[in-house]
Design a protein around this nucleic acid. Sequence first.
RNA 1: GUGCCCAUAGCUCAACCGGAUAGAGCAACGGCCUUCUAAGCCGUAGGUUGCAGGUUCGAUUCCUGCUGGGCACGCCA
Length: 579
Amino acid sequence: MNAEQDIQTHLSTLLQTAFAAIAPDQVCPSIVLDRPKQSEHGDFASNLALQLSKTLRRNPREIAGQLVAALPASDRVSKVEIAGAGFINFFLSSATRLAVVERILAAGNGWGRGNWGEQKKVQVEFVSANPTGPLHVGHGRGAAYGASLANILAAAGYSVQREYYVNDAGRQMDILALSTWLRYLELNGINIPFPGNAYQGGYVRDMAQQILLAHGDRYVHQPWTVMQGVPDAEADLEGHLDALIVNAKQLLGADYAYIHGHALTEQLGDCRNDLMEFGVEFDTWFSEKSLFDGDHVERAVAELEKRGHLYEQDGAKWFRSTTFGDEKDRVVQRENGAYTYFASDIAYHLNKYERGFDRIIDVWGADHHGYIPRVKGAVQALELDPDRLEVSLVQFAVLYRGEVKVSMSTRAGSFVTLRELRQEVGNDAARFFYVLRKSEQHLDFDLDLAKSQSNDNPVYYIQYAHARLCSVLAQWGGDAGELRGTDLNPLESAQEQQLLQRLAEFPEIIQAAARDYAPHMIAYYLRDLSADLHSYYNATHFLVPQEHLKLARLTLAAAIRQTLRNGLALLGVSAPEKM
RNA sequence: GUGCCCAUAGCUCAACCGGAUAGAGCAACGGCCUUCUAAGCCGUAGGUUGCAGGUUCGAUUCCUGCUGGGCACGCCA
């Protein structure tokens, strides 16, 4: 347990004791200690008297007076005041305020971490984009959000597993394989009209080129065989594509698996590489195909059937999701016998539960929100606890260059990829900007701002604070490790007190960010801390002649630096020592 | 049409599971580099928290309705 938590529980205990003294027959309500917005209101405030005024039928200020009179003495508290409507404000002793610095230096990179999660097993599944092309800027937000969230949950004491669900079994992958093959045929001089709903991007041609180089004309088939029995594209676009896929499988036989596998390996590898460069890594890459190979899908559907949640209609097998609040029932097995994506997703979630997670977090794009009731419904139907599954929706990011919106179109192949974004603005700015908004809020991502090396840019603002502190400590020239145990009593100014309080809040911020799945809280905290530092830096010299004052300030500097570093690490942003 | 999300300063957004005088940044205006990094700081100005009700000692926060915007409503994934 960290000591800051101790202070809150300490104050809470004092209040409980006081409560028992003034109202022995009553049950004490849960005690809430807030950090007041204004420093005149102390370090912590309790609204206990306000909460009690109804049950005790007395004036809140009167109750507050009795509570304060009954409070046991504490050397960690210097003053207690009653204010406003009946708030009880606690002012901590100077030694208690200063103690945070030593705690930071002692904990180092572990500073801020807590065990609120009690090492419960949490899975965060995120990105999970189809490996059918490069990641685009929309995936980037999910990646940055999910990665930061996972870091924060880990820091809050959860045992976190990061997972990417690979959709390697569906029609989209077949379309990619077909697209690759058609481009390959083109390179061999065989021109078949390239379907408008196939994958248009240049990377498809690249893969075709690789296959050509490695295997020559081995996979060439004549155009009339490829087009045999294929309906006209203008009459039936999707049917046209599906028929081409059927022909490809038939003509290529076992070779189809090679092209399919090559495309999958290439795209997944590219995706993994892209994410790794972005500082986003996964513990597991879970294959959808493995669910079919291992009969997990059949088993999941059988489980639903056994419990009487399935019925047949029009030759298809339906899940009665309306029983669980969905607006319509959903097909799990099509008329042609093939399982739907939903069926494999049921199996996937069953599998997640079987892996024993206490909490399962799915990070989805906001466009999938309509999917939540059916998945939760399936979970309920399987008699699993739906409350253990939480879906966190991430809204779209819209790119701007200044005032001008950057258009994105996947169809035309002209989308802005995550890689392009990273190259343009840098990983740090991209990671930071992505989590600067609440996830359920639409994000306007200004490319010009993100890459501007100016005071407009909040990333640099924070990194600059860190670099400044590094610079000061470097010019001092001593060993920062030896600053532990320094006498901090010379830290008396209002700005120093403000900084001490801000530092003390860091673990609380991590706790709140973990509770609310809100990485943006870390970003805002770091900006506030940086603002405090810059303000202090401009007003105060660290390297002053008086040795005891200098050491006290340098020790504070080391503590701030450590906090900035730890916070930036949670967001996957670097903490440069020089800028 | 139905469902989900959103609406806070001119702009982009915060506000810690309901708390005290709603805060930052940008844009505007006025100052600060002979001193540890000016990618910085100090100051001024900016608000009926979309509208109307309700619950509460107390509402930006919770509930209902309305207005406006985004998204979703396939035997696609």
